[in-house]
Every structure is written in structure tokens, then in C-alpha cells.
């Protein structure tokens, strides 16, 4: 059981948590993640460690409510407890001084890219940030990113804020302007990562993406998280989650992530039913 010391929304259904986990805080490196279980019969889900605070012994995670477990998590508040948290898992990001590094985050992907972007900056890179969202309210961590980036470009699909268009359009624009780019880190929805890989491929720019397959143990024991990279099988939880974007079989990953769509729908429905039922019971008790 780990205590939540802070919980606040950054965007609609995207919530930041600081959780007491001193050992993980001490050990974690950029690019690593934790596995969380919200309740006894809950699923084990992976979440990137966005930040840590050694003095208070906490790790920060930023969660987008997409289904049962993440939506349940986003109902929790400071003072509540997380049932289990284990980590730090996965290989840390490979941090080097590449020169000019572009860090691209789409939606909650910005939270996943943030710790690595910060490390890239600390390693001496000139860091350009591109952070996208559907509309203004979905652009997250702008202040944090601005602090560590030499240039920052928010983008929105609807043009309600910053650059009007996808993050890839902004990246393409920088390339068209003749900007020298040595390294690209792209984290977000799979189609976005695939599109970034397609943009940088002709330029031969080293591009890294963080893959999000469905995981169970996240220690290399089950192989459920296997991804195809360069026509070989890798376990994303121990060999990744970061891989060379130009070699990833994104279509296979996209299909594999859809494996439990029906179950996921049912699971969320049951959860909502459960909450409804509790609310009704409460009403009755109070009546």
C-alpha cells in the first residue's frame, strides 16, 4: 500500500499523482516505469515515472483515464492509497549528447517524454519540444517543458492554441526550414509515433519511440508485451520500452493492443455499475 501525497488534474481526465515509494524514487532513471494495481482484483498496468523527489521519497505519475483501471485511479485523491506499486521497470533511456534533440509528446505522451527530455537537456543537448493535444486544454506540462527546452512549440489539432496541426506537421516544418536535427524522441498514440518515424526516415535522423504494449508482470516472465522490431521479437518490458522507431512494426503493435477491446468495454461498464450501485446504496442509507 502506497500513499498518494498529491493528486491534481492537468487536463480533462489527465491526472498527476505523487506517490510515496522511496525505493523506487531512489532508483529510477528517465524512461523507466512502474506497474500499479489499484485494487485487490485489479489489473496490473504500466505507467511511466514522470519525475521523482528523493527528499520526500515520492514518484510522480501522470495518468490519462482511458479505461477501467486508469479511470479508477483518477478517482483517487491525496491521502488515498494505491494497492501495489512495483518498479522501476524497463530499460532507462539512452541519454547522450546528440546535439539538437527534438522531444515530441502527443497527449499524455508528453508526460512520458518529459523525464527523458529533461535528461537530454542535462546531457548538454539543445532541446526542442513539440507538445501536442487535441485542443488547448489537452496540452499538458507546458510550464515544466518550457523550463527544460531551448524552444517549445505547443500544437493543437483544432488550432485553439499554438501551432495549428499535428506534431508531425510542426516537425516537418522545422525540417523544411532546414533546421539541423540530430535526434528525435516521439511518444504518444501509435499512429502519431508511426507518422513521426515516417517523417524522419528519409533524413536518416535517429528516432526513438516508447512502445505501449499490453503488459502483465512487466519483468520478462510472460512475453505478453512482445513487439516486433527489425523482424525480431523483443519483450518491451525488459528490452524496452524504447526502440528504434524506424524498425518497429507499428501495425502489429496496434493490432495486438486491440486484443481485449470487448473485455475492456465490459470491465469499464461493470465498474460504472459498481459505483452507481454504491451511490444508490448511500442514498438509501441517508434517506
Amino acid at each position: 500500500m502506497n500513499k498518494i501525497v498529491e493528486a491534481r488534474f492537468l487536463a480533462p481526465d489527465i491526472k498527476l499523482f505523487r506517490i510515496e515509494a522511496p525505493k523506487i524514487a531512489e532508483k529510477r532513471k528517465p524512461g523507466q516505469f512502474v506497474v500499479v494495481r489499484v485494487e485487490e482484483l485489479g489489473e496490473r498496468i504500466p505507467l511511466t515515472i514522470a519525475d521523482s523527489n528523493l527528499e520526500e521519497g515520492t514518484v510522480t505519475i501522470i495518468v490519462q483515464g482511458v479505461g477501467k483501471t486508469t479511470k479508477h485511479l483518477n478517482l483517487l485523491e491525496a491521502g488515498d492509497f494505491i494497492h501495489d506499486i512495483v518498479g522501476p521497470l524497463g530499460k532507462p533511456s539512452e541519454i547522450e549528447n546528440y546535439g539538437v534533440a527534438v522531444s515530441i509528446g502527443g497527449g499524455v505522451g508528453t508526460a512520458i517524454a518529459y523525464p527523458t527530455a529533461k535528461a537530454l537537456k542535462e546531457a548538454g543537448n539543445y532541446v526542442i519540444g513539440i507538445i501536442g493535444g487535441r485542443s488547448k486544454e489537452f496540452v499538458i506540462l507546458e510550464d515544466e517543458m518550457r523550463r527544460i527546452c531551448d524552444e517549445l512549440y505547443p500544437t493543437t489539432d483544432d488550432g485553439s492554441y499554438g501551432f495549428h496541426g499535428f506534431v508531425t506537421h510542426k516537425l516537418q516544418k522545422l525540417l523544411d526550414e532546414g533546421r539541423k536535427i540530430d535526434f528525435v524522441l516521439a511518444i504518444g498514440p501509435i499512429p502519431m509515433m508511426k507518422a513521426v518515424a515516417d517523417v524522419t526516415r528519409p533524413y536518416g535522423i535517429k528516432t526513438v519511440v516508447s512502445l505501449n504494449p499490453i503488459m502483465v508482470d512487466a519483468t520478462g516472465m510472460c512475453g505478453g508485451c512482445r513487439v516486433t522490431v527489425d523482424n525480431k521479437i523483443y519483450f518491451a518490458c525488459v528490452d524496452g520500452p524504447e526502440f528504434d522507431a524506424h524498425k518497429v512494426d507499428f501495425d502489429n503493435l496496434m493490432k495486438r493492443n486491440r486484443m481485449y477491446l470487448e473485455h475492456e468495454k465490459k470491465s469499464l461498464e461493470e465498474f460504472i455499475c459498481r459505483i452507481d450501485l454504491m451511490a444508490k446504496k448511500l442514498e438509501k442509507q441517508n434517506a
Binding site: 502483465v216 516472465m221 493490432k255 495486438r256 486484443m259 470491465s267
Partner: peptide, 30 residues
């Protein structure tokens, strides 16, 4: 081997035993 519907025994059994997928949706893991 990466097609959908193909499991390692460890994954298949862990989902069912440790995560109790046979009790889905009472248990969350499918």
C-alpha cells in the same frame, strides 16, 4: 508468432491463476 491469440504458457496461466481471469469481470484481467 506475434499474431493475436498466441500466448506463452506463462502469460496464459498467469492471467488465469495469479490474475484470476476466469472470474472476469469480477477480476479485471482478461
Amino acid at each position: 508468432e506475434n499474431l493475436l491469440g498466441i500466448y506463452s504458457a506463462n502469460e496464459f496461466l498467469t492471467r488465469v491463476n495469479l490474475m484470476r481471469a476466469f472470474e472476469f469481470p469480477k477480476a479485471d484481467t482478461p
